[in-house]
Design a protein around this nucleic acid. Structure first.
Lengths: 237, 237
DNA sequence: GAGTGGTCTAGACCACCTG
DNA sequence: AGGTGGTCTAGACCACTCG
């Protein structure tokens, strides 16, 4: 289900090669013409993939020169992050995600952060509460909400590779197309302070997201709290 | 200087029409074929402009249907924002920017947040300290740093429309291509608390940015502090 | 001068949505 | 069935960089 377009394959392929160190930071990618030949396609298609890599901060393009690898960022969910120690260097961090509780089907919170459509409101709400770690330190609390519309069986099997988005794409053909988000700074409440092992009132990054998918009127909602004392969030996407 | 490519003109034109209410929220944009005809160009060029509008959160595209206007966002520098009251509605806010002090030429701060190249470090540093208001409330403190490389006369005249980026484009042909940023939550220090009229330690959004320009090795740096009690930041770009 | 990315053209076929 | 956006082709000319 959900055949991937060619530019997405090129994007994934080049991204992998960057992350695996085949194209280290500072090096040049093959030229657009070379990539077109390699993937047996045209420059426009290759450019679609490269444009996405620029947007995500992996490469920088130089007119007349080439595409320069600028970072081998790591991803934390759909966020990338880095430690403060490595403003220059590129340490490798371990990333881990734990489920705080089994995924459940509940009703929508009454004071939900986004205005829902009637269809969404009348459906049940699948929720996923996860805690993400960087270098064994808890850094991100993620509450995800999905309307139980056409994905009722989502939690009957394990998530593929622990990834919600990969599961949605593979099993239901749902692709993430875009996201809208709102960002604020808030003080940690007692429970969050306990989770991150910090004082109550410690500043946290609070992000509310709505993911737009290829399925009309099907959105995914997420509320994130990030503890940014040790790790900052990069290029929010 | 710095002729604008056609897709940028289309982007600006459509954006203006959205912001002026010609295409209200929820309405459909003219189809890609119509826009191609209007601007006497091809669909690919129109799509380049529309893709940017999607990325900035103005429109959403629906396969087989059209491009739907999703918001008429307002901009706060290069950020957009909205108040909490209007999760649904689209109030219009007044936006204003004040210079905190005359622009100056100084040395780079010793503990600068980004690793500078030798060329940058050896140049003087142009700084701009601004405070932005939404509905008369101070919401964003912005410290901008530019290497005095080829733009030594930048501050000898007033900024065009008070906009740094517009001035750079018009007078020096410098265009912003991309940006890298790091986001954290911090507690307000005494001076910031005074600026925003809040308690010391109030959570603030702290953003460090590096703008990539069309001029090789010429970057612009910015450090932002956002008071998000009343206004949140949307779709950070 | 050769190669690169930036922009643009004029088509094509497809999947999707609506009447 | 006709229109829409999604993807892709096979070129083109330009401005830029580098040797």
């Amino acid at each position: 289900m959900a055949r991937q377009p060619q530019y997405a394959l090129i994007y994934e392929s080049v991204k992998q090669q960057i992350q695996n160190g085949l194209f280290p930071k500072g090096s040049l990618l093959p030229s657009e013409n070379e990539l077109s030949a390699q993937f047996a396609t045209t420059r426009m298609t290759v450019r679609q993939a490269l444009t996405e890599l620029v947007r995500e901060g992996y490469i920088e393009r130089r007119h007349g020169k080439g595409s320069i690898v600028t970072s081998e960022r790591q991803s934390l969910g759909l966020l990338s992050f880095h430690g403060f120690s490595e403003v220059v260097g590129q340490a490798n961090h371990t990333v881990q995600t734990n489920l705080l509780e089994p995924p459940t089907q509940t009703n929508w919170p009454t004071d939900f952060f986004y205005a829902l459509t009637d269809a969404e409101r009348s459906a049940r709400c699948l929720t996923l509460n996860r805690l993400r770690y960087a270098d064994e330190l808890p850094v991100m609390l993620e509450h995800t909400f999905l309307p139980a519309l056409g994905i009722e069986t989502l939690f009957e099997q394990e998530l593929l590779d622990g990834s919600l988005f990969k599961t949605l794409r593979t099993r239901y053909g749902i692709d993430i197309r875009n996201l809208e988000q709102t960002v604020r700074a808030v003080g940690a409440d007692a429970k969050q302070a306990d989770t991150f092992d910090c004082a109550t009132g410690t500043p946290l990054l609070a992000i509310e997201r709505r993911y737009v998918t290829n399925r009309p009127d099907f959105y995914i909602y997420s509320k994130l709290y990030c503890y940014t004392e040790q790790f900052a969030i990069s290029n929010i996407f």
